[in-house]
Design a binder for these strands. Structure first.
Lengths: 336, 336
DNA sequence: ATGAAAGCGCTAACAG
DNA sequence: CTGTTAGCGCTTTCAT
């Protein structure tokens, strides 16, 4: 490996000068700058980031912690966050936990070893580091912050969003409304799940409609779990005319399952989704859903994190992103 | 920040002992190990990876270079590759180029600064570093290697795969077969595109079927481009009875476009895909396609890369992965 | 404008 | 089994 010393010798200057060539080129005279530049080219020298980072004690990298990079919503969040990171000179490390708390914890310990300057967490696990009042590693939670969290956060108002999409169904004339939501068996129940259920119930309550526990189905946000849940709908003798579903993928699978059982959507049963991933538009029928602006959320979260890292003065660290209700084809008034 | 020195003082041992506590704990007596462990806990010490990496000159990290993390096939590749990386103690940096050669080149220069020990490239751009006979940074190309590449590679036989899926159509009785493939306007034409077209043409030729350039449509592998391509099919007075499409997403969009124009699939036109992403199964009709084992490819590529990095003796560095033809519903015999 | 030198925090001989 | 010490490659005062 060619080092800064090689270049210094080659250019007949001190290592300090070579260092300046990269970090403060304007402090060099034209002549020396030229000589150094030549040496750099001849020797094909690239500064060693490891060494540089060590004495700057900055890694110039951030980590994004998430459960599953193959989730299309998360992938879009990562893509947009990643873009602002590179634009600002940072690398991004993937912290894909594959839904394992152990793996996520392992990532946290790597983070503590300073391989990154901060992290974005897109999951709801709570780690010691996040509770430690002496913690110095910046982080922001995206989408999944417990509602009482005191740390930086970027999220939509899931309660309101879920309430609104439910109200849309009610305004369409539905009175018998079921839901298909996430399950609650985690150590740290997903705030997303909690809030979306809460919004659903709020809407019913406000309109004086009874919540039927027997119409409350559970899934894990996947297409498959939606497909499977459809089975239970068939078994219902008194069937809802509409379902609020906690994610587009699950809604898509649910619709597919319903159709395979001969139940038409939206003619027999209306279905709504959540997230507005690309597939929502291409599902048949196209999904009426809540749009969560993945791109914007990724950008805002990364922007916030980098500001935190760079010590910029911050106005606000708990940022609410506005959602949208997207009306397409999967919901219509109930048959008389 | 608490450093190794703090711990050493606290435990009344030398820094070397503390270092050994982490790298070779069995070389310590029970007593000292205990003392050090206590100090570590009390001080909440975590070794600084930056410093460690510097004098080991190893980053314990690898980069995955790709065009778009929101591509479901790539996301699955990354997820599986990532899994073997963490299992072997490495972090993975995302090199998401957003289809920009400049960004990819920028990542390459970061790589040269030694922030990672090696990289997997899932794109077809050729960089100086890859041609440099003196290059010491290990890398492997996944899926997208030019066929004459001399460097490590993991890929399926795209020519054979494309030929086989075309033959399936021919065996079904189709004689008028069109295709929807990628375009060739890149500096480094995608070998994937080249090979899939070649396989398509080979199949026709072997069966003595004429290749009709006017039935050759172009897209960019996206759902949208498939949808748009369907428009051109309507305009054809002499229409093929089947199309070989270069990716599942594009095939899916193509089918959707066809259906929106009143052309039934597969009754009027058969369509095949490529990749077998999850959506292929859920598309309507479900896609007959070539299965490219994303999970396995990611694992093999990462395994190979880490072996390379760790200097393990290698039997083979150009690895061919077997594909499968998956028969579902989107292809049937042509109407008489 | 440039150089000398003291580290950044840790590892790895080499001694003992 | 444990300690001493010389770096890893670079940045950054402090002088000049």
């Amino acid at each position: 490996m060619t080092t800064i010393v090689d270049v210094a010798i080659h250019a007949n200057v001190s290592v300090a000068t070579v260092s300046r060539f990269f970090s403060a080129p304007d402090k060099l005279s034209k002549k020396t700058a030229l000589r150094v530049g030549e040496a750099v080219n001849n020797l094909k020298y690239t500064p060693n980031a490891l060494a540089r980072n060590l004495n700057r004690s900055r890694a110039n990298a951030v980590m994004i912690l998430l459960n599953d990079i193959t989730n299309p919503f998360l992938a879009r969040v990562v893509a947009s966050a990643d873009k602002v990171a590179i634009d600002r000179g940072y690398s991004v490390l993937l912290g894909n936990s594959h839904f394992s708390q152990d793996i996520e914890a392992n990532y946290i310990s790597r983070i503590q070893s300073r391989v990154v300057d901060g992290f974005i967490q897109v999951s709801s696990n709570v780690h010691d580091i996040m509770l430690d009042p002496n913690n110095t590693i910046p982080f922001v939670n995206l989408c999944e912050c417990p509602s009482n969290a005191h740390y930086p956060t970027v999220h939509i108002d899931n309660v309101a969003a879920s309430r609104e999409i439910t109200e849309l169904l009610i305004n369409l004339g539905h009175q018998k409304i079921g839901c298909l939501m996430g399950i609650f068996n985690d150590k740290y129940p997903s705030p997303v799940t909690v809030d979306r259920l809460k919004g659903f119930q709020q809407a019913l309550q406000r309109k004086g409609i009874k919540y039927h526990p027997e119409w409350h189905l559970n899934g894990d946000y996947s297409f498959e779990s939606g497909f499977d849940a459809a089975e239970q709908v068939c078994a219902m003798q008194n069937r809802p005319t509409a379902f609020v579903v906690g994610s587009d993928e699950m809604a898509s699978g649910f619709i597919r399952g319903l159709k395979s059982k001969g139940i038409r959507v939206p003619e027999d049963v209306s279905v709504t989704g959540f997230d507005d991933i690309p597939m929502a538009r291409f599902s048949e029928p196209a999904l009426t859903t809540v749009a969560q602006p993945a791109k914007k959320m990724g950008e805002v979260a990364m922007g916030l994190l980098l500001d935190l890292i760079e010590g910029k003065p911050l106005h606000k660290t708990q940022i609410k992103i506005t959602h949208d209700i997207v009306v397409r084809e999967s919901a219509m008034p109930p048959k008389a």
